[in-house]
Amino acid sequence: MLCKRIIPCLDVMNGRTVKGVKFLDLKDAGDPVELAARYAIEGADELVFLDITATHEKRKTLAELASKVAQAINIPFTVGGGISSVDDALTLLYAGADKVSINSAAVRRPALINELAARFGCQCVVLAVDARQTEKGWEVYLNGGRIPTGIDLFEWVGEAVDRGAGEILFTSMDHDGTKGGFANEALAEMSQRFHVPLIASGGAGTKEHFVDVFKIGKADAALAAGIFHFGELSIPELKQYIYNQKIPVRIL
């Protein structure tokens, strides 16, 4: 039986892991490769690296990171942050990344999804989308949640899947950082409507939240950063708890 996945997310700036709350109060949290290796040993099913470096040096540092991670760890990983062309993705995938995640660049130029899927296959293309609930429904935001677009979340995800996105990484900005649980209602609707794997992000605070996001939110994977980095929840303890709730997870 296909297991539900637990995915720690590492924010990276200038080649170092940073910890912060909603991109604020960033603190150096050490070498991302060392942290990644520890998570892999503890039983993480996959890893996501998100480069939040603001400069044009990003491309080079991200490729170097992808190569170092691929050399050190034996589980799949995704890299994202500023990928806007086939060339950007090529550099990262050939450095050893398994998938690339695209966000704002895909909204600005949706054909990017088709180009990546045609070149590398759908399985390499993760569409990351940040959204917030309004009176009209769920609205897509760009640039790490700073720019509202007026675009409907479900319409955009549907278009992205049609264009070749092989996986969706949905972050609810309303839930992100709250530690109050995932956006299960929206996730369940998304999981039912679109037949590609769905990664839930935003809101993880307790073990129960992960059980809920799989049972109620129908997510295929759950992503979290803070609760793992700050040591509030250990991956082996979390996975054992989920397993005990009769949800299929990989136990080492």
Binding site: M1, L2, C3, K4, R5, D45, C122, Q123, G166, E167, H195, V196, P197, D220, A221, R250
Partner: peptide, 28 residues
């Protein structure tokens, strides 16, 4: 009628060649 790609950790069984020496049935 199910999610495609089939992506993630799944179990293997009926292991029957030397490639799977020392690997337990239903490993992920």
């Amino acid at each position: 009628n199910q999610k495609v790609p089939h992506m993630g950790w799944n179990t293997i069984f009926k292991l029957s060649d030397p490639l799977f020496a020392k690997i337990q049935e239903h490993s992920s």
